[in-house]
Design a protein around this nucleic acid. Structure first.
Lengths: 166, 166
DNA sequence: CTTGGAATGTCAACAAGGCTGACGTAGTTT
DNA sequence: AAACTACGTCAGCCTTGTTGACATTCCAAG
């Protein structure tokens, strides 16, 4: 009976209607999530693709192009177009790999780091506000669900980054 | 003192590094969130824009174009291109408004409802799995944070839909 | 009953950012 | 020496967003 109850309890919050609402929430929230950086990026001639590149170079300075391709999940042609403008504009530096000289290792310049900081600050501010309003337990739950929504492969990338943080 | 503790507790989980990780989680999770519908849509000649339109018409049958524009946050030209193909392909029906005949009220046809169901089922399956693995408390927290991440205006739309569910 | 404004649709042109395919050039590995 | 890898690039295409201009239809106010 206790099992029956927990089963029905589990089913209770997994109704299709509630799942649909969660899907919608995800859609609207993502719009909010990108809104502030988008505004900043629009002023320069950049887009979300530039933001993503800058973000992941900030996270892993010296990362290679192939690495970035795997994380971003786009073609090299697509990434290259973005990287080229960032390098031309002096926001990203591309250094020949010290061991394997076919590789290009990517770093943010001072200007690149400045833009990254601006974008990140805006995005973190919204995140921080949402977290504060929702409370610590909500934040823990939020992160758990997000992790389980990822594709397994990306989840490994995500988890691996946690190790790198130390 | 109790207040001091809760303050420092609040600061504890709001470090920039953790906020950055949450931002990344949001990015990766959204990729997972759209992955399954994207695969289905790619087989037909549709994209995410079609999915969004179909979703919100399903949610609010008879909604007007203006309504949809506000929710989706795109220009009417952009939405119209998508709606036109959906109408041509017999997935959406556009009826002249009964009271105000300038308005177009949008409905899913049987075929449209079928596609919507297919997309929604795939997306709900991933959501359901993530929810089950993360547990009920996590789900509650997830939804709270998402709501607080939305722009206030969209949050009102989202909350209003809850009323309409009854 | 006219007129202003709202709702809708549509044409044209453009841009960002995805994609595929093909090819070249270093550099590394076998 | 041959094969493979990492990267860059050219060309062309698609979706989905944008602006601007304009026509139509129709409600509502004067």
């Amino acid at each position: 009976m206790a099992d029956d109850f927990s089963d029905s309890d589990a089913l209770l919050f997994l109704t299709d209607a509630q799942l649909r609402r969660a899907i919608e929430a995800m859609f609207f929230a993502y719009r909010g999530f990108t809104a502030d950086p988008d505004r900043i990026l629009a002023e320069m001639d950049y887009g979300r693709a530039h933001h993503r590149a800058i973000h992941f170079i900030q996270r892993s300075p010296g990362t290679t192009v192939t690495n970035l391709l795997a994380i971003l999940g786009v073609t090299k042609q697509s990434l290259n177009r973005v990287l080229r403008t960032l390098i031309e504009d002096g926001l990203v530096e591309s250094r020949v790999g010290p061991r394997d000289r076919r590789e290009r290792h990517l770093y943010l310049t001072e200007a690149g780091a400045a833009l990254e900081a601006e974008l990140s600050t805006a995005q973190r501010a919204r995140m921080r506000a949402a977290f504060r309003e929702a409370g610590p337990e909500a934040v823990a739950g939020f992160r758990q669900v997000l992790e389980h929504m990822m594709d397994p492969e990306l989840r490994r990338v995500f988890a691996a980054a946690r190790e790198g943080d130390r």
